[in-house]
Write a protein that binds this DNA or RNA. Sequence first.
DNA 1: CACCAGGTTGACC
DNA 2: GGTCAACATGGT
Length: 209
Amino acid sequence: MKCNNLKNVYNTLLNEFGHQNWWPADTSFEVVIGAVLTQQTKWTNVEQAISNLKEHGLLEPDTLAQADVELIEELVHCCGFYRQKASRLNNIAQYFADIGIENVFNAPTDKLRDDMLSLNGVGNETADSIVLYAANKPKFVIDAYTTRIMDCLGINGNYIKLQELFEKELPVNIDLYKEYHALIVEYAKTYCGKKRCAECLLISDAAKV
DNA sequence: CACCAGGTTGACC
DNA sequence: GGTCAACATGGT
């Protein structure tokens, strides 16, 4: 796999867009909920759903675990896939309530990642988002935008391959990981269409340095 | 009206 | 290992 200057790409994005300060949430459990709700969904809809859950006092493992799934469905309806998401959130909350949120997050990074992956509705990206933004541990989050952009640079690989590349090229730094992923999302939303990446010049130029 | 959004799952090859 | 339909609402 070619060695590109991912650090320079980061600096270019940061210079262009400024700090994104992800993840917006009051508590770490809210990050977990948001990570599931935002799957294939715009963040504005997630904000609405989180606000609904908050009004009903359901942003805690215990209460969410005990809430009726039908009520959760209503509250997260605006996020789409609302039946799966409601059921999965209920189940995930049960897990956190059983183990204890502190105990869950105190696990070593790799174990925590595996623990999250074992939950229904939590795949690679959601697991890593939880590890990085909720538990505050160093794991680089890959998403469809990242994959698309790397593809534009002639670098292809599956989720794990790309993640290994970023983690190998970059210093292990939680804040850098957090900011970088957020910047990629911001950049891609603004400049990079789904099919074509002709507008990806900002990144491709930075990668050549 | 078509397309996409800070994906995941289970079935299949 | 990879591919693909299902899952579903809301905004442009």
